[in-house]
């Protein structure tokens, strides 16, 4: 689904949030008028129910207006709608005359609103299967050709990429990748280079049917004023176990954006100093977990 579509859904969700806010305020400040309009002013319960519904509307407003990506929160409104429709249904069934007509009209309106809420919620949650996009860049104090050729030999990548166990070139622009996945499981796939411009760009994607669909590119440009080479990396992948997997990984400090930045930093260390720099706190040099779980700064046994 396109970003544009996501933005539209979020706008809709936010509008619904404002709707909830308005309705909630009216229900709290003028409960009697609301009860009369809905034809339920004859019930002793209406005096309590209407303000309670008002409070609920305000909580919808809070999550919808307070979230950066509000669309999935429209589900809270869908749940509220279901409740309202049940109550309204009973009201219609139990009444006659003008009260019944009013209750029916309000019910019809709520059915319409429910449709909009449902649409927003469904569109909003479809993005959960979305590809993860990571971008990072670093400046390396070496000529562009050197930097390009080092990267071009894909078998070099595990030297600085913490999660890569190995990359094996299998000829014809193809390669076999092995990655340390979450919970110690490794994930493997084959990739193919789809664009290769010496000194400028390398782009690849995983072959059809890979366990983890992914693609990426690295661009090399001259940094201004003789500052070396700018390395721009773009990575896209389908998260191994859905968004939950990424959230899980984050819990352990393995924030993927940070990982790409750290990988690039080690790439720079290798290019500029010859190897990944080690300290007593992280003597392996390349274990990602060491950023959060340092050893004491004492020599290793």
């Amino acid at each position: 689904m396109s970003e544009e579509h996501h933005r539209k859904t979020d706008r809709l969700a936010r509008a619904l949030g404002w709707g909830s806010l308005g309705l909630g305020v009216i229900q709290l400040t003028a409960p009697n008028a609301v009860a009369r309009l809905s034809g339920v002013d004859d019930s002793p319960w209406a005096r309590i129910t209407v303000p309670l519904v008002g409070v609920r509307e305000l909580s919808h407003a809070a999550v919808l207006l307070g979230s950066r990506r509000p669309a999935p929160w429209a589900w809270t409104r869908v749940a509220g709608d279901a409740l309202d429709l049940t109550v309204l249904g009973c009201s219609v069934a139990n009444r006659t005359g003008w009260r019944r007509r009013r209750a029916a009209a309000v019910t019809a309106a709520v059915v319409g609103i429910t449709a909009v809420d449902l649409y927003t919620a469904v569109c909003g949650s479809r993005r959960t299967g979305r590809r993860v996009t990571l971008r990072a860049a670093i400046t390396v104090n070496r000529p562009r050709e050197d930097v390009y050729w080092y990267w071009h030999d894909l078998e070099n990548l595990p030297r600085f990429m913490a999660h890569l166990e190995s990359v094996r070139a299998t000829g014809d622009g193809r390669s076999h990748w092995k990655v340390k996945g979450p919970a110690g499981r490794s994930v493997e796939w084959d990739a193919v280079i789809i664009d290769d411009r010496p000194g400028e760009l390398i782009a690849w994607h995983s072959v059809e049917g890979s366990a983890v669909g992914n693609s990426g590119s690295v661009r090399f440009t001259d940094a201004p004023g003789g500052r070396g080479t700018e390395v721009w990396v773009d990575l896209n992948y389908d998260p191994p176990v859905g968004m939950a997997g990424v959230a899980f990984a984050k819990l352990f400090g393995e924030d993927p954006e940070q990982q790409v930045r750290d990988d690039l930093r080690r790439f720079k260390q290798v290019m500029e100093t010859g190897e990944v720099v080690r300290s007593e706190g992280s003597p392996e040099g390349i274990r990602a977990i060491r950023q959060v779980m340092q050893r004491p700064a004492q020599p290793v046994m």
Partner: peptide, 20 residues
């Protein structure tokens, strides 16, 4: 690194494994 080459050794770009 370029910091070192400009004499700014205490902001060397490569010597902190915990730069993150």
């Amino acid at each position: 690194c370029s910091a070192c080459q400009h004499g700014q050794y205490s902001v060397c770009e490569n010597s902190n494994p915990n730069a993150g």
